[in-house]
Design a protein around this nucleic acid. Structure first.
Lengths: 160, 160
DNA sequence: TTGACATTGTTGCAATTGCAACCAATAACA
DNA sequence: TGTTATTGGTTGCAATTGCAACAATGTCAA
């Protein structure tokens, strides 16, 4: 049986990066996104930012760049450039807002919607694969935990 | 009771970026790392890569840059530069490997170990806060799920 | 031994990023 | 009104990134 011996001080447990949650999250994010990122990069010539802009327009319909910024938590510079490229590639079109001449209403073109439909379908298939790795219960738990972390740690609107 | 009506085709469920696991993981990673990143950036003038290099040297002791690359999954260019900066700032020192004149054995200086001890302690405190947000059970579940995703999705050594 | 190939770490360079400055349009308000 | 502040979006520029090329060293078989 264990006896409590007198000791000067307990050595502090060493920090282990490989068990540090932000690091694990980052590694999991990179690993899990890799295969899908390859699809929209190689097959559609899109960057991650372009894909996110398209995904938001695909889900929510027409909206302005600033709204996309708020929803997607992307820098407005990146959104501006992604929009230009998506427009150049015929995936979206801009329309001046009638009531506010500063705004531009962005919406997917027919071709953009087609690309979104394809990528969306493949995204859901991909997600199904991930769900299979974990099992449905674990997957749901994971999603819930991630939402807690996001809600509690998200920087409050333009901090830092 | 629901009756199966004849229909042309069921509308496919739309893709929702906000429920896409890679996206959620990325958002959770960014949100959860933000506060801690601020610490090593602002208080120690270190980048994320520098912190990771230091964390690995702190845990494993002396090792070469290439070994750090393998462990941390960082590009060798970034490691090379991070090492230069850490050396410039007195956090680590290089020693030529006696048996292989190409290699350099890297190790933290006394000062580097002190910084690692401080940051490590704060990292563990930070992790404890995160654990409190989720509860111990959820936290353990989360970690397990992340390890599964990493193991199953990690690109097999220099793919792409 | 030599010659082909692999490995370690650095650097050149082009592409990406992000902050700040900017322009134009609108809102707020004295 | 006129004046000032705010907002939507773009662009300049400096810093960061990452791939490819590189020099130096090491390995191994002919």
């Amino acid at each position: 049986m264990k006896v409590r011996l007198p000791m000067r001080d307990t050595p502090p447990p060493p920090f282990d990066l490989d068990a540090f949650l932000p690091y694990l999250l980052n590694q999991a994010a990179e690993a899990s996104s890799h295969a899908f990122a390859t699809i929209y990069r190689r097959e559609y010539g899109m960057t991650r930012t372009q894909w996110r802009v398209m995904a938001n327009l695909g889900k929510f319909g027409a909206m302005s760049a600033t709204e996309i910024c708020r929803i997607s938590h992307l820098e407005k510079t990146m959104v501006s450039r992604a929009v230009s490229q998506l427009e150049r590639d015929g995936h979206l079109s801009r329309a001046p807002s009638p009531d506010d001449k500063r705004r531009e209403v962005l919406s997917l073109t027919t071709e953009g919607r087609a690309v979104f439909a394809e990528l969306g379908a493949r995204g859901m298939a991909f997600q199904a694969e991930l769900a299979q790795m974990l099992g449905a219960a674990r997957m749901a738990e994971l999603e819930a935990a991630l939402r807690v972390l996001i809600a509690q740690n998200r920087a409050p609107e333009g901090e830092d």
